[in-house]
């Protein structure tokens, strides 16, 4: 599974070394974010051990408030909400990771090529970006869901494939101004290869806006899934996702608070965790920010 953070931290590590980790560890908000992310991932991994069956239906228990048996209560079909949150974590986290991984990789590669080489390459890539941007991503998502099954993999891939344009434009913009800088000119004079200039010298310096957008992106993808669920075209039942659980919560708003509060907070906290962590990484990565 492509993981944007690994790729990026590796790149950064090659330039910045251990200072990165020290800086990151000193950032309390980033650590809080990391703790949330780790905790949620752990829950997702341990879902089968921790929870009851997320699909077991007992109609006689429908809409029971949280109790000793069902800590988070039960949903409209009498299923255990805690179990569904845990299994939903797997789906929602996976959606976030894979979608952003795809989007970031495509965005970085195309943005870097366009920004570094300029000219025709830039023109072609940017026109392609323009074309992609002209399609509302929702339209593309719908087209794909209509063509293929609305399976969770298709949803992740399509969220990724429709979300890279912003990254590409940001990377390109960074490259455009970076390549004119003195240090790049200097490396070029030494005779470094294009690939080396791009990956060792330009990219690490262009990453901060990408990181910000990628971190917002993980959360964004989780939210996109819930938005698709709102329209009924997200992850489909009986597979639980936080998004489709929240829809049940919405239908019972004001009556069964546990059905909207728990999945709502799961989304909120997880997205928050990713964003705090990402911010911290950004600060720690940036060689110019170390005071």
């Amino acid at each position: 599974m492509p993981d944007p953070y690994n790729t990026m931290t590796e790149m950064a590590a090659s330039g910045g070394g251990n200072q990165f980790w020290t800086a990151l560890r000193r950032n309390r908000m980033a650590m809080a974010g990391a703790a949330i992310v780790a905790f949620m991932s752990l829950l997702a991994l341990l879902a089968p051990v921790l929870g009851q069956s997320p699909e077991y239906i007992d109609v006689s228990l429908q809409l029971s408030a949280p109790n000793a048996q069902h800590w988070f209560g039960t949903d409209d079909l009498g299923r255990d909400v805690l179990a569904r949150i845990l299994y939903g974590a797997r789906i929602s986290l996976l959606v976030g990771f894979v979608a952003v991984g795809i989007a970031t990789l495509i965005g970085i590669v195309l943005g870097a090529l366009a920004g570094y080489y300029g000219g025709i390459v830039d023109g072609l890539i940017m026109r392609f970006v323009d074309i992609m941007l002209c399609f509302p991503s929702f339209f593309l998502i719908l087209a794909v869901i209509a063509f293929l099954e609305p399976s969770i993999w298709n949803i992740m891939v399509i969220i990724g494939l429709t979300g890279w344009m912003g990254v590409a434009r940001l990377v390109r913009a960074e490259f455009l101004s970076l390549r004119e800088r003195e240090f790049v000119q200097a490396v070029r004079v030494i005779g470094a290869s294009d690939a080396r200039i791009i990956f060792r010298h330009l990219l690490p310096n262009a990453l901060s806006p990408v990181l910000v957008s990628a971190t917002l992106g993980v959360g964004g993808a989780i939210l996109t899934e819930s938005a698709l669920s709102f329209l009924g075209i997200g992850v489909q039942p009986p597979t639980p996702s936080w998004g489709n659980m929240l829809i049940v919560g919405k239908q019972t708003l004001g009556e069964a608070w546990w059905l909207s509060v728990f999945p709502g907070f799961a989304i909120l906290i997880t997205v928050l965790g990713y964003n705090l962590l990402g911010e911290g990484i950004r600060d720690a990565l940036d060689p110019r920010l170390k005071d």
Binding site: M29, G219, L223, F230, I267, L268, T270, V271, N275
Partner: peptide, 13 residues
């Protein structure tokens, strides 16, 4: 934290 809460809250909710 505040702006991220804004971002992280599903809007329809």
């Amino acid at each position: 934290v505040f702006v991220f809460i804004g971002f992280a809250t599903p809007s329809f909710w």
